[in-house]
């Protein structure tokens, strides 16, 4: 059976959920061979094996943390040449897309980014993408070279599928270009204790209607009652009420959770682009004419300062 190369996104050996989803999709095409780089790379093996990985290629070097993107491209290229895979799959993070693109160029392949589904096809894997602010769905495939495809979080379920997960060391010698962009400092983001926005099953977002930074506490309290992540519209971010890393929309994150609750968000195209593929959509807005209501499964026309606290109380009461 053909092998499929899967690039592993991990934090000190803890595999992030989108990589496990990628393994589910990889198994539709062939046998997953994972590439894990940097500190804790070998620690990823047990989790990867539980989810169908037959082989884990690992390499650690200081360059991965000290220089931007290119060292990882060099390593992925070594793995590609060693495995000769049927496809290369990479999580669709900002960095993942850059790694994938540079690899594709080096190996003479086409690239598809931000796939939301992947299936085997007669002429290679067929990727589903959501385009034009999620108003269209396309099916595409790479027609030149080994397909390089990046896949968005929440595109597949995580499935247990025990496999060998044999760890093998990768021998990487970095190219001259690998040390071109130095990372001179790193400030870790403060953990909120909430799920990662793009990976969360439930996302709650606040917009202009929230009215101020201090009022986001209302949204956060409701989010915590549901174990949800918190997002914000561009209007709220531009007003300085919530961090840009939490922005949902065209120039922020694109999310696709099971449940999306928009509070005080009108639903401009810029916002819809980032949330339209959510499974169930709920909105609370005092303007009955707001375009967000065209998308909802359930909408409440009302003052979010009344509705949100009542909802939070009700959820707490039901959960006892």
């Amino acid at each position: 059976m053909a092998e499929v190369l899967v690039y592993v996104d991990h934090v000190d050996g803890a595999v992030r959920k989108p990589t496990l989803e990628l393994l589910t999709l990889a198994r539709r095409i062939g046998e997953p061979v994972a590439v894990a780089l940097g500190g804790g790379a070998a620690d990823t093996a047990a989790t990867l094996a539980e989810h169908g990985t037959v082989k884990v290629l690992t390499h650690d070097a200081a360059e991965y943390a000290e220089y931007l993107v290119v060292p990882k491209v060099d390593a992925l290229q070594v793995a590609y040449e060693r495995v000769s895979p049927a496809a290369v799959l990479v999580p669709s993070s900002a960095e993942g897309k850059e790694i994938a693109a540079r690899l594709a160029l080096r190996i003479g392949s086409g690239i598809i980014t931000d796939a939301i589904d992947l299936e085997a096809g007669d002429e290679g894997p067929v990727a589903t993408q959501s385009v034009f602010a999620a108003s269209f769905v396309t099916k595409s495939r790479v027609s030149k070279g080994t397909p390089v495809i990046t896949v968005k979080p929440n595109s597949a379920a995580v499935e247990a599928a025990p496999a060998a997960g044999t760890v093998e060391a990768l021998a990487v010698s970095f190219s001259e270009k690998a040390t071109g962009t130095k990372i001179t400092g790193r400030t870790a983001r403060e953990s909120t204790g909430r799920p990662e926005l793009t990976e969360a099953a439930i996302v709650l977002s606040g917009g202009r209607g929230v009215g101020g930074a201090e009022n986001f506490a209302l949204i956060e309290t409701l989010a915590d009652s549901l174990g949800a992540a918190v997002g914000a519209s561009r209007a709220a971010v531009d007003a300085g009420w919530y961090p840009h890393t939490n922005q949902v929309g065209q120039t922020g994150k694109s999310v696709s959770p099971q449940l999306y609750i928009a509070s005080g968000i009108s639903g401009a195209i810029q916002h819809r682009a980032g949330m339209q593929t959510s499974k169930t959509i709920v909105a609370i807005n005092k303007d009955a004419e707001a375009p967000i209501f065209d998308l909802v499964d359930y909408g409440v026309v009302g003052d979010l300062f009344e509705v949100v606290p009542q909802l939070t109380e009700e959820i707490k009461a039901r959960k006892g």
Binding site: A104, S109, G110, I111, I112, V126, S130, V131, A134, S135, F136, V137, T138, K139, S140, R141, V142, S143, K144, G145, Q276
Partner: peptide, 11 residues
């Protein structure tokens, strides 16, 4: 082009 769009449909 090294990619081919096989189908496009309005959501």
């Amino acid at each position: 082009a090294s990619t081919t769009v096989e189908a496009a449909a309005e959501r």
